[in-house]
């Protein structure tokens, strides 16, 4: 059982890391701000989500697991808002600073 949980953790965290890597490459390589934002949100949503999912079996108790999920949800809300704000700024002010 614990071996199964460990395998799941490794697989999910690695998958999350792949999304972070892809998001970072996109952030560096994509030509315009909106596509760069698009790349970044993948790292935020899926990358962090997969990592949290992978770490859940390793948390000692329910309280710690709930905290981890709360961190993910808060990052989601903050990330989505900031993405909207940056995108709005880009649309109104050209390509931005």
């Amino acid at each position: 059982m614990s071996l199964l949980a460990d395998v799941a953790t490794v697989l999910l965290v690695v998958a999350g890391a792949v999304f972070f890597l892809a998001g970072t490459v996109g952030l560096l390589r994509f030509p315009d701000p909106l596509s760069r934002l698009h790349a970044l949100t993948k790292a935020d949503n899926l990358g962090l989500g997969l990592m949290v999912l992978g770490l859940l079996p390793q948390m000692g108790g329910l309280a710690a697991a709930v905290k981890l999920v709360a961190v993910w949800l808060l990052a989601q809300v903050a990330g989505a808002t900031v993405t909207q704000l940056i995108a709005r700024a880009v649309r109104h002010g050209g390509s931005g600073p």
Binding site: L74, V77, A78, A80, T81, Q84, L85
Partner: peptide, 14 residues
């Protein structure tokens, strides 16, 4: 900004 207003309503209780 609509999304900022939403965040400012969601986040303060937490």
């Amino acid at each position: 900004e609509g999304s900022l207003v939403l965040l400012a309503r969601l986040l303060p209780p937490v």
